[in-house]
């Protein structure tokens, strides 16, 4: 039957000629190629802790809880981030702001405990999309390695941005 597309190519396995069957010319050629790499090509390795790969601008790394322009925590512990999280990595306990704490928390309600399990987190960025207060961003670095599972549950001490005037 005639092929309609006319794209078909008939391939036939040609028997190797004596030059090809001798192996050695091909081996010498291959060794030339590897020698070129040995002598001239620079290593592409990035020695990680000392050197760092350049990330793209929308790289999603470790989370940070933001402060507003007066240095107050933006988070109101509404729980939308925890709700939106597909990996269920976020959990929090809310508390009410006491009088005199207005310089610490922006709204009347704030997160007393805010924990992200970095082993569960898939860095999808849905929490920052869900946040109505622009309080959480995944703008940090790579989450560092550690020995124990419990050390991967990051609390507010690691997540909240440094205060403004310090």
């Amino acid at each position: 039957m005639e092929a309609l597309s006319n794209k078909r190519k008939v391939l036939e396995a040609k028997p190797l000629n004596i030059w090809e069957r001798a192996y050695l010319p091909a081996i010498v050629k291959g060794m030339g190629i590897t020698l070129k790499h040995f002598l001239f090509t620079k290593a592409v390795t990035i020695s990680y802790p000392e050197q760092k790969r350049e990330f793209s601008e929308n790289f999603r790394g470790m989370h940070s809880l933001k402060r507003d322009e007066h240095g107050r925590e933006r988070c109101t512990a509404c729980g939308l981030c925890a709700l939106s999280c597909p990996a269920e990595a976020i959990t929090m306990i809310s508390a009410e702001r006491k009088p005199g704490e207005e310089n610490l928390y922006r709204e009347e309600k704030y997160a007393a405990v805010y924990e992200i399990n970095m082993l569960r987190c898939i860095f999808c960025g849905l929490c920052e999309e869900a946040c109505p207060k622009e309080a959480i961003y995944l703008d940090g670095d790579i989450v560092p390695s550690d020995y124990l599972r419990k050390d991967f549950i990051y609390g507010k001490d690691k997540l909240v941005e440094a205060p403004l005037n310090q």
Binding site: T34, H37, V44, S47
Partner: peptide
């Protein structure tokens, strides 16, 4: 080390 250089890596360092 040589394997690394042949493969454009650094090797044990």
């Amino acid at each position: 080390k040589i394997a690394a250089f042949f493969q454009d890596r650094l090797g044990p360092s």
